[in-house]
């Protein structure tokens, strides 16, 4: 199984890339506020520092869940990011891996709030109820948009098949079909809620619920949770770019450097996606209230996702 080996090899790559992406995000965010901002490797410093810090488990916490959930969250989101990256490198896929990735990413964000609510802190509990409400809001349109794109590309639930479809038609899917363009828009709109950054960071709002689920975590546990969050950002922006905007004509030009050029271009593209969907909204919007965020998602992305699904079934 060469694919498994590649998958294992991608894990450290995901770790590095997601922290690097977070560093770039913070730098650009700072520059938009006319500050210098932290150095790009700042997330690495933070991660290592938290790893070697003391770990405190509050006496009120349900110990086993509290201890297990950060590792579970980090593991599932890193694997969730590694699968698409490994498939992109190995140029293969297994049936249903797209569903697996979406599931793992959701799992990671659920694990974070489960751990938070097991800490026994009332703010953790508020964070939990808010996160569940947010999940209902964004998860449905997100999944529908993925289903819509997979219908267009096959229909197939293999991640690499969708990329193959784009290579075959020599066009990115979002440029080729109206339904895919709508699905792409939905997906992009959902990213900032799925990763929980400012207009939708309601479950972990610092000034309202003091980081919500993260409140009682310290040291290595917190490092893992932060890693889970940044690799979710990385994974979702990579997915968004490769599923919808994979421009095959550009990548397949250079045959000599083929693999590396393709990968590099994909990463650059997903960086752009991240800057557009994570950094920019968190710079220019204020945090919404839970009711408003919920309404936002049910009024715009959900109808859009359903439209795109219908259009793709109709073959547009």
């Amino acid at each position: 199984m060469i694919a498994l080996e590649i998958l294992l090899a991608t894990l450290p790559l995901v770790f590095l890339l997601s922290l690097l992406f977070e560093g770039i995000d913070r730098k650009v965010h700072a520059r938009m506020q006319r500050r210098i901002g932290p150095p790009i490797i700042q997330p690495f410093y933070d991660f290592i520092k938290l790893l070697v810090k003391e770990n405190i488990v509050p006496t009120t916490a349900a110990r086993s869940i509290f201890n297990a959930s950060p590792s579970l969250a980090a593991a599932s989101s890193i694997v969730g990011a590694a699968i698409p990256l490994a498939n992109l490198i190995a140029r293969t896929g297994i049936i249903g891996d797209l569903i697996l990735v979406m599931y793992l990413l959701t799992m990671s964000s659920i694990m974070i709030v489960v751990g938070g609510s097991s800490s026994g802190n009332p703010y953790g509990a508020v964070g939990f109820s808010r996160k569940i409400m947010m999940l209902i809001g964004y998860e449905i349109p997100l999944l529908i948009s993925v289903v819509s794109i997979s219908i267009k590309a096959g229909p197939s639930l293999i991640y690499y098949d969708i990329i193959l479809a784009q290579i075959k038609s020599d066009k990115c899917l979002a440029c080729a079909y109206i339904s895919s363009a709508t699905a792409a828009l939905t997906f992009l709109l959902c990213i900032s809620a799925a990763v929980g950054v400012v207009p939708f960071d309601i479950p972990e709002a610092k000034t309202e619920v003091i980081h919500g689920p993260l409140i009682e975590y310290s040291g290595p546990q917190l490092a893992l949770l932060k890693l889970a969050k940044s690799s979710t950002i990385f994974s979702l922006s990579l997915l968004a770019f490769t599923l919808f905007f994979y421009f095959p004509t550009i990548y397949e030009l250079s045959i000599v450097l083929g693999e590396i050029a393709t990968l590099g271009a994909c990463l650059l593209g997903s960086l752009m996606v991240m800057l557009l969907t994570v950094t920019l909204p968190r710079t220019v919007f204020a945090r919404l209230k839970i009711g408003q965020a919920f309404k936002t998602y049910w009024f715009f992305p959900l109808p859009m996702a359903i439209t795109s699904l219908m259009l793709s079934v109709l073959g547009w």
Binding site: M32, R34, V284
Partner: peptide, 15 residues
């Protein structure tokens, strides 16, 4: 606000 933020991206930081 978006324009303001994007413009600031290319201005010299105040720091």
């Amino acid at each position: 606000m978006i324009w303001e933020a994007l413009k600031s991206l290319f201005k010299k930081p105040l720091t």
